[in-house]
Write a protein that binds this DNA or RNA. Structure first.
Lengths: 302, 302
DNA sequence: GGTCGGTATCGGTTTTTCCGAACGAAAACC
DNA sequence: GGTTTTCGTTCGGAAAAACCGATACCGACC
């Protein structure tokens, strides 16, 4: 046999849900079908994609890497059908994008590279700034679309938005941290820890607000604007961090492992999405951008 | 039903061969299977991909556009399996590429965008120059790999090469040109025409050499370094052109139609490929580049 | 008008996919 | 410490799909 799109879809679903049965449910299909598709995929690639555990599955590093490819392929397929079905006029013109420093690396890069390949005749420019200023530029008509955290927009009534990704806060720990031995971690446990905070996109306020509920002032060990720095600091034991799952990666640049754990109780979520000006007609180039981003988003959700 | 990789493979084959039955033969499969797969694909997309003619099929503009997507998807799939099967180490380092002005737009751009996405940690630089000078830079170790016409290398013994694409010369005509009414066109017919020549990568010498065989000196109406200009000039009736099929597109920038016709007798072919220095160890980053380019090439061939 | 080169259609067969039930294994629960 | 719960896997049979070969069909070419 050879590789099948169906296998990729099932694989992505299973990876998202970290469970064969949940994936099967989401796909409205039987568990055994998913199991067999993934098994087939693994034997075809000659790589183990998941580690089966009694309580679900966790993806292997190789699986993680293949997952990126699988999502990319499915997104490409979605775009191909969309473009073909819509009719074949080439979009030209100019597109002015805005990003925040957080979304630039973790959301925009994928979408943008695909967009440029699909619409080579569009002149794309992107500026990076704070969420607040991006809103200002959108409303002023200087930007067409911005990619940013949309959970707390300041001028919601003047803006239209589309959620691309919902990501909940989780706790990052070095692999040998004492809290790792607890089955469940409460927010109050975290309040006693040294904290590494990320000083972009209001991530700091969010984390501090969470912890301040316990009366004590959070102990901030380090404040940085670089996610990579947070990872390195957490990995080497300088402290723990509360950040959206979106930016989590299991390894730091130096190769040290990082764990990400749920905190009991409901932690807030951040919504990352697109915004554009409400009311005014949106350009073809901008509409295409929204569509490309949505296609990628939908594929990931499965 | 939903879209299938198998459908894409069959479609690409049929598009390449401009024939269902030839494609079936190439795929070692029955003709009806290919017919049905393509029909299914068309009804799924809601777009007609081919115009059926008594003497084979020609691809529609929508089909042409979808073909690019299909090839891109298949190439992505090939790379995903290759990377997964090979094991998951990220390639880093630097890659110095060389291109000629012809290969930059028509060959490199696709491969390079895919390469950058697959290997974000590699620092890529590219220089554009003449084939002769690129060879010099390769031998001197200043470039790792070059993408160029490899039909007539000057220093073949010092270089290793890998063919990516073989493209034969064809005649470009405006749609209403008298020669279009002839069933077959001889080279001697062309010798009387006004010629538009492309002044890059020795395309001019090649075309002139072909026509000089008839004693007369070819009538060169225009000499330009831009393929787009050639297309526009041909479309508006300023002359005809002899160029490799690789750079043919059915429309000029202005939207005017151009025909491409075989010339009876065997016209020479140009080989476009990669070259690198023979003997010296090739870097990981360069090997990856060769592999990505090959994957794309193989997909197209089907 | 017949042949030739090609595509579309159709019944029958093979292969693939899917389901549901049974199985097994580790964690959670009492 | 045993039982229950929750998963993932395995397996036989059923449903669906892909494939094949033969045949019908259609326009160009002679």
């Amino acid at each position: 046999m050879s590789l099948t799109l169906k296998q990729l879809r099932y694989f992505v679903a299973a990876a998202n849900q970290a469970s064969v049965s949940k994936a099967a449910q989401a796909l409205s299909i039987s568990q055994s079908a998913v199991t067999e598709a993934i098994k087939e995929l693994e034997s075809y690639l000659g790589v183990q994609l998941f580690i089966r555990q009694p309580r679900g599955m966790t993806i292997t590093p190789e699986g993680q890497q293949f997952l990126r490819h699988a999502i990319s392929i499915l997104a490409e397929v979605a775009n191909a059908t969309r473009v073909a079905s819509a009719g074949a006029h080439r979009v030209t013109g100019r597109l002015n994008l805005g990003v925040t420093s957080l979304t630039a690396g973790y959301v925009l890069s994928d979408v943008l590279s695909r967009y440029r390949r699909l619409n080579p005749d569009v002149d794309v420019t992107a500026v990076e700034d704070t969420a607040e200023y991006l809103e200002h530029l959108i409303i002023g008509g200087e930007l067409d679309v911005a990619v940013m955290v949309t959970s707390n927009l300041r001028n919601a009534q003047a803006l239209q938005s589309e959620i691309l990704e919902v990501s909940s806060f989780r706790l990052w720990l070095p692999i040998d941290h004492p809290l790792n031995r607890q089955q469940s971690i409460a927010l109050s446990d975290v309040a006693d820890e040294q904290l590494i905070v990320l000083d972009v996109d209001e991530m700091e306020q969010e984390a501090v607000k969470l912890l301040s509920a316990f009366g004590k002032r959070p102990r901030i060990a380090f404040r940085t604007r670089s996610v990579e720095a947070v990872r390195s600091l957490v990995a080497t034991g300088a402290g723990v961090a509360l950040l959206p799952d979106l930016v989590y990666r299991p390894w730091s640049l130096e190769g040290d492992r990082i764990h990400s754990r749920d905190v009991s109780g409901t932690l807030p979520v951040v919504q990352v999405g697109l915004i554009w000006r409400r009311g005014s007609a949106i350009s073809d180039a901008a509409r295409e951008f929204v569509a490309v981003a949505q296609a990628q988003h939908e594929v990931k959700q499965r």
